Amino acid sequence: MTRPDPPDQAGVPRRLRRRLTLHVREQGDRGSASLELIGVSVLLLVPLFYLVMTLAQLQAGAYAVSGAARDAGRVFAESRDVGAAHSRSQAAARIIFEDYGFASGDVQVTCLDDPCLGPDARVRATTSLRVQLPLVPDVVRGVVPSEVVVHGEHLATVDRFRGGS
């Protein structure tokens, strides 16, 4: 005749507790690897996604100011009249900013030589743009910068041999 196992403090026989403990040890980690992979992936992918979005926005801003400065300087240097040159260069820069998805930017064109549009005269076009960082909530705008200012500059030369007056 076999003796029954004496119960432990919780009232569960020792043999049954031993079998349950072994079963839990064998089965305890089953299925948790996929859950850990999902958790770690989310923790890594969300900041990576934000970083890519932010860098793409900043890169678009850098291309916009560079292109706007280049085109504003070229258009100004190809003009015949200084008054028309300013309005044409502003329009050229505005088109470039809009092409890159920005509503507006600042453009300043200055003549470095006198006369301004004489042969071999130099013209400096300077642009700046405020690039809004994506997904920055209004609550943290006082603590975290919500925009970055990007600058561009281009030096254009008036053609030496252009015809006409």
Results as ranks from 00 to 15, higher is better:
39 G>H: 03
21 T>K: 10
40 V>D: 05
95 I>R: 15
119 P>V: 04
78 E>K: 09
43 L>Y: 01
100 Y>I: 07
27 Q>H: 15
27 Q>E: 14
120 D>K: 13
33 A>V: 10
163 G>T: 14
49 F>E: 02
141 R>Q: 11
126 T>F: 05
81 D>F: 07
109 V>E: 01
18 R>D: 12
148 V>Y: 04
25 R>D: 10
149 V>N: 06
94 R>V: 08
34 S>L: 15
87 S>P: 02
91 A>F: 03
114 D>K: 11
145 P>Y: 00
35 L>H: 05
20 L>P: 01
107 V>E: 02
31 G>D: 04
157 T>I: 12
74 R>I: 10
89 S>T: 04
57 Q>M: 14
25 R>S: 09
122 R>M: 09
83 G>W: 03
72 A>W: 03
37 L>N: 10
142 G>R: 12
130 R>C: 02
145 P>M: 01
76 F>A: 15
46 V>Y: 04
62 A>I: 06
75 V>N: 07
146 S>T: 09
36 E>T: 07
155 L>V: 09
135 L>G: 09
105 G>K: 04
152 G>Y: 01
156 A>G: 01
67 G>C: 00
126 T>K: 07
6 P>G: 14
1 M>N: 08
57 Q>D: 11
45 L>S: 13
78 E>I: 05
99 D>K: 12
160 R>A: 15
24 V>R: 13
15 R>V: 14
158 V>T: 02
53 M>Y: 00
60 A>D: 08
34 S>W: 03
83 G>Q: 13
59 Q>L: 14
146 S>F: 07
4 P>C: 01
158 V>E: 00
109 V>W: 00
29 D>S: 15
136 V>C: 08
53 M>S: 12
96 I>T: 14
29 D>T: 15
84 A>C: 07
101 G>M: 00
62 A>V: 07
114 D>W: 08
148 V>P: 07
71 D>Q: 15
29 D>K: 09
39 G>E: 02
12 V>C: 05
91 A>P: 00
134 P>V: 08
94 R>E: 15
97 F>T: 03
103 A>P: 00
18 R>Q: 13
165 S>M: 11
70 R>P: 01
9 Q>T: 10
92 A>T: 00
93 A>G: 06
95 I>H: 10
110 T>V: 11
34 S>A: 15
15 R>K: 14
15 R>Y: 07
87 S>I: 11
3 R>F: 02
89 S>P: 02
33 A>N: 03
58 L>K: 11
136 V>N: 04
99 D>G: 10
17 R>V: 06
48 L>V: 11
39 G>L: 15
144 V>H: 02
140 V>C: 07
3 R>L: 12
